[in-house]
């Protein structure tokens, strides 16, 4: 590699590729299996309005593990983290705004 090419790198810090080890993948895989067992178990307990809350909380935890480790976001650059964060934020606006509209009007007219 020429000196000039090396200079071009200076000041531009591109993200070094990080290889996630099989051990990490296996631990996450196990955690996902435990999460699945938990969510099935929780569905048989009558917690009234808390059943969907618990189910979604477990699903969000599992999804976070998948995104951070299987999809490497934990080891990615700030640009990637911001991109994923912006996507999740926009998704929450989509769901939150729609639900708040439907839930806050037309009571009993369904």
């Amino acid at each position: 590699m020429s000196e000039n090419h090396a200079e071009a790198h200076e000041g531009e810090h591109f993200h070094e590729a990080h290889i996630v080890s099989p051990k990490v993948y296996f631990v996450i895989f196990m955690a996902l299996l435990v999460g699945t067992a938990l969510t099935i178990g929780a569905s048989y307990v009558d917690m009234g309005p808390w059943n969907p809350v618990i189910a979604i909380a477990i699903a969000v935890t599992k999804a976070t593990l998948v995104v951070l480790y299987f999809m490497h976001i934990k080891y990615s650059s700030k640009l990637m983290k911001l991109t994923v964060g912006a996507g999740v934020f926009t998704f929450l606006i989509l769901v939150g705004m729609c639900l708040s509209d439907y839930i806050s009007r037309a009571w009993g007219q369904w």
Partner: peptide
Amino acid sequence: FPLLYLISRH
């Protein structure tokens, strides 16, 4: 899976 199969189960 939880939304379609589970949350109305108990």
